[in-house]
Computed example of a mutant assay.
Amino acid sequence: MTHNTPLSPRPLRHLSEVHRRVLTTAQLRAHGLTAAEVTEQCRPDGPWQQLLPNVVLLHPGPPTSEERLHGALLYAARESSAPGVPPQPTAETPHAPVYAEAMITGLAALTLYGFSATPPLLSLDHIDVLVPRQRRLRPTGYVRVLRTPALPAPRTVTGLPVAPVPRALADAVAELTDAEAVRRLLTEAVRAGHCEPAAVVRELTQAKLLNRPHVVDAVDSILAEGRSIAENRLYRMVAEYGLPDPVWNVDLRLPGGPHLGGLDAYWPDQAVAVELDTRAPRQDEDALWSEYARKREHLERLGITVVYITPKKLRDSLEQQAAVVRTALMASADRDPAAYVVVLPR
């Protein structure tokens, strides 16, 4: 019997080729095989092999990277409510079973997302699988089990449930001591548009990784990188959507008075300002937001409209952000004139 031999009484037509090559012992029993028959097929010179506990590879020889990934998920996924019944496909993934309460994370997940700074899947010593904290599951073979109080919503990549990029980054960084490797991963995540710096910092903070100097240095680098990317998108928004040219990167002061704050773009004739909200969610987030709020309130008391835009909004909805700024510029005609302020280069 080989993986090409039909199993009964449940046919495997609804499964993709890899799902016919990697099955759990419960699934094999559902197809009519006894435990003794499975053991016989998995003998040292037999046609099958035990890939992981209760997970069988239906051919001899080394597993492919795809088989290793599916085997890891089969090992880690919560069992179906009906024992022995394989997870059923969904409308979104008609040829793949549902892996309940398990997803690929760490370096393997980043490789699936297409990161160039991660090793090939077959060269990874282990594959990280994320499961709920309460699951009783031990690491085994090439599978490393990571636990979390609340599973994030997975992304589907090549038919597999994969942790979102910021979570996968945090799980990968947790095991890396090479400062350059950490910097490359975080930089690629931001530069290639996989996620925003703030989302990365949030996950690293929750994972308590910001007490490691090499991680902090990498975070400072991606925050600077993220601001530069956001500034370029802001320049593009003004040019592509026909907004009047502002003065860029300026400080405002009252004549002979105090400094009012720096702005990324300012339209003096309309008294409209744009500021990029590039706060990173660290311990001082509340204090930093209070500073943002105080500056905004002060400027608006002077008759200056302040539009805050996040890098994520610039990435995902540039046209909509341009409309917000255009509306503020047009509305200036209906407002009382703003107080006179001095505009200085920043």
Score class of each variant (00 low, 15 high):
residue 2 T to H: 15
residue 3 H to I: 06
residue 5 T to Q: 12
residue 17 E to V: 02
residue 30 A to F: 11
residue 32 G to A: 06
residue 39 T to S: 15
residue 44 P to L: 09
residue 45 D to T: 13
residue 54 N to C: 00
residue 55 V to F: 04
residue 61 G to S: 10
residue 62 P to H: 12
residue 76 A to S: 15
residue 78 R to F: 01
residue 79 E to I: 00
residue 89 P to T: 02
residue 107 L to G: 01
residue 109 A to E: 05
residue 114 G to D: 09
residue 115 F to P: 04
residue 121 L to E: 12
residue 122 L to P: 00
residue 129 V to Y: 03
residue 130 L to D: 06
residue 134 Q to H: 14
residue 135 R to H: 08
residue 156 T to D: 10
residue 164 P to I: 00
residue 171 D to G: 07
residue 180 E to W: 03
residue 186 L to W: 01
residue 188 E to V: 02
residue 196 E to P: 01
residue 202 R to T: 07
residue 202 R to H: 12
residue 203 E to P: 02
residue 212 R to M: 01
residue 212 R to A: 11
residue 216 V to S: 11
residue 216 V to Q: 14
residue 218 A to H: 07
residue 220 D to F: 10
residue 231 E to Q: 14
residue 236 R to I: 01
residue 241 Y to P: 01
residue 242 G to K: 11
residue 245 D to N: 07
residue 251 D to W: 05
residue 257 G to E: 10
residue 261 G to E: 03
residue 262 G to C: 06
residue 262 G to K: 10
residue 270 Q to C: 01
residue 275 E to H: 10
residue 277 D to S: 02
residue 280 A to E: 05
residue 281 P to M: 07
residue 286 D to H: 12
residue 286 D to M: 08
residue 287 A to F: 09
residue 288 L to S: 12
residue 293 A to E: 15
residue 305 T to K: 11
residue 326 R to T: 02
residue 328 A to P: 05
residue 331 A to M: 03
residue 334 D to S: 12
residue 336 D to A: 15
residue 345 P to S: 09
